[in-house]
Amino acid sequence: MDLFLHLWIMIFIYSIFAMSLNLEMGYTGLFNFGHIAFFGIGAYTSALLTLHQIPFALAFVVALVASGFFGFLLSIPSLRLRGDYFGIATLGFGEILRMVFQNEVWLTKGPMGLPGIPKPILFSYRFATLPQYLLLTMGLTIVTFLILRIIIRSPLGRTLRGIREDEIVLMALGKNAFHFKIKSVVIGSVFAGLAGVLWTHYTTFISPGDFTLSETILVLLIVVLGGKGTEWGPLMGAFVLIFFQESLRFLKLPTEWGRYLAPLQQMIFGGLLIFLMIYRPEGLIREKGEGR
């Protein structure tokens, strides 16, 4: 039963993370390879504040603001670049931030990590047990889904999709593409931060090793597998991949298999990505539109 609850909590957290990336990658066409950085900023901000006895509600808000603010800071220089170049710049940002977590020992305790992060307390209600935490993550997943859906279905969402299709055209029609892309990255970063906050108070221990490139790749895979540029795609992708990843962890396998399992998982992810590229490049769920 605990495994089951754990599984769903992870699925919801990664759903939020994937939905935030989907806004940038699926709808705006921005291939952000450093998305884990904002997950990390949310996680560390909330962890550090609550460890310093700041109420969770306040830490939560500050963490989201911090994620959005850093998204804004990153987007100003990096969005001057297009396509692959933007991808490389964000990749660099993700790595730099991990180095900051690792080396600013006075703040983050470096590789030792931060243990004993308290469970969240909201309106004097403590989300301590698994079912309670599941409710919290599920609630926030629904909120995220609804907010992003409002954005996606609005004229703003339409303009973002237009930028994905052809930025030059949008500029010729009088749209400030640069501003719209910043908006997309900031919104995406805020929700990535939200996923980070939920994750950090769930595991109660974080260290720089949790925010590596492979996490970004996992969430990229979730978005691509589920169907980028669709409302339900990231949820679908998170369900399939996290279910697969986490359930492996709980199989009663002989311990000596351990050293084969981790690389095997990477191989399976890689194989899955190749399979998708060949047989279903649009992902499990397809973007709406007529005629193909």
Partner: peptide, 29 residues
Amino acid sequence: TRVLPKMTVLDNMLIACPRQTGETLSSLF
């Protein structure tokens, strides 16, 4: 010619409207 290929003909038109209220985040809510 540059159309927005993976958007409908109608969306291609609507996107061109200048100064749409719905393009700002706060107005959506």
